[in-house]
Design a protein around this nucleic acid. Sequence first.
DNA 1: TAAATTAATAATGAATGCAAAATGCAAATT
DNA 2: AATTTGCATTTTGCATTCATTATTAATTTA
Lengths: 225, 225
Amino acid sequence: MSALDQVGSISRPSLHEELTDRLRSMIVEGVLTAGEKVPERALCEKLGVSRTPMREALKVLASDGLLTLEPNRGARVRAITVQELEEVFPLMGAFESLAGELACAQISDAQIKELKRVHEKMLTRYEASDMPGYFKHNQRIHELIMEAAGNRTLITMYNSLAVRVRQARYLANMSAERWKQAVDEHESIIQALEARDGKALSAILKKHLENKFAAVRQWIEDQEP
Amino acid sequence: MSALDQVGSISRPSLHEELTDRLRSMIVEGVLTAGEKVPERALCEKLGVSRTPMREALKVLASDGLLTLEPNRGARVRAITVQELEEVFPLMGAFESLAGELACAQISDAQIKELKRVHEKMLTRYEASDMPGYFKHNQRIHELIMEAAGNRTLITMYNSLAVRVRQARYLANMSAERWKQAVDEHESIIQALEARDGKALSAILKKHLENKFAAVRQWIEDQEP
DNA sequence: TAAATTAATAATGAATGCAAAATGCAAATT
DNA sequence: AATTTGCATTTTGCATTCATTATTAATTTA
């Protein structure tokens, strides 16, 4: 075995890949807001690239459901509709549920420890009423469970939905009760994981998401009376 | 309201869309086989298009997981690995299971009738030992259940997995017993649907897929000893 | 003046061109 | 003879250009 075998090949992501990632972030972070036109030319100039890779990126994001391409009329940021949200949540529920079962079957002690660590941090943020901080750790916990499930296809599909839900920031608003409830649910999640009780965790995660959805739905109904 | 308002606008799908569909079919139908390089230029000439829309299509298919793009080295048809298959099947199980529950909750009598019709046709094909014909109707039945679930997002995600599984034609080989078993399972599926028993259907569909997977896994093990 | 038609402008879809990278091959070296 | 090195060819990534379709502005006409 030569010393060179240790050296990994350098990966230089192509322009269109960087662009897809960049644009995806811009959409999720709300720099490009829902319904907004995506002016090809302007974006190209802003980011200093030509139209070819930009258009390639737009096609990919459209196939991911983040944009709509109206022929000869360009791209628009696709706003997730209430109807779509009602479609997406059961799916995410199924994903989380599956992830829970898979995770319990093979999660390591180290992974559980890490989860508890993040969970504790999240609690601190909750007690400090720091919602953004809370969400950050909250998201990380769900990511860790997905990772523990050890199914890359599952992660990919889950993320593609999560992105679209996150894009519509229904979640920024949460009542005090709902927040308390969510924290309690997370407590049970950790417990089920420690016990490696797949069925229980699966059910809790599904319920957790259903409650989240109920809160979102409530929020929507309050918004558009 | 003028008479012209009745006339729908001609939808001329853009070239890259047609190309993505075309290439997707070529992959699923095995015209482009797994592992094979996809020579941009040659394909362009064959299909009479320029490289731009072709490259856009390739990017989309890559993001769908049907191709891999090695930078500066072009596209290859991505062969689904055994590991990936093991990832995909639980997911499809979750999808089918969810579809079953949703379908039972809202399927119409007309839809059930249609399902039974296709089911009967499928039985005829089984009795005639016509496997391709059987598969065609089999696939249609699962499509109809998905449609009855009335969740477009679910359908989209399910299809994107189904395509990748279908591409690897593990299914063409099926033992007589397995075939018999599959037919019996389909019998139960129809019954559960008629009874609109969501839980039961959900369980049957999941089991149905698990058995299918077991058969596929068996086939793989026989292939590479 | 307001509606409608036409002209001008801008944006998109697709094709071509060019530079960089990879591949294939033959000569050269060990 | 086998491996390496240099060179030509091919292929890819991206930019640019051309053509077509929308959008806007201007003009005409009722």
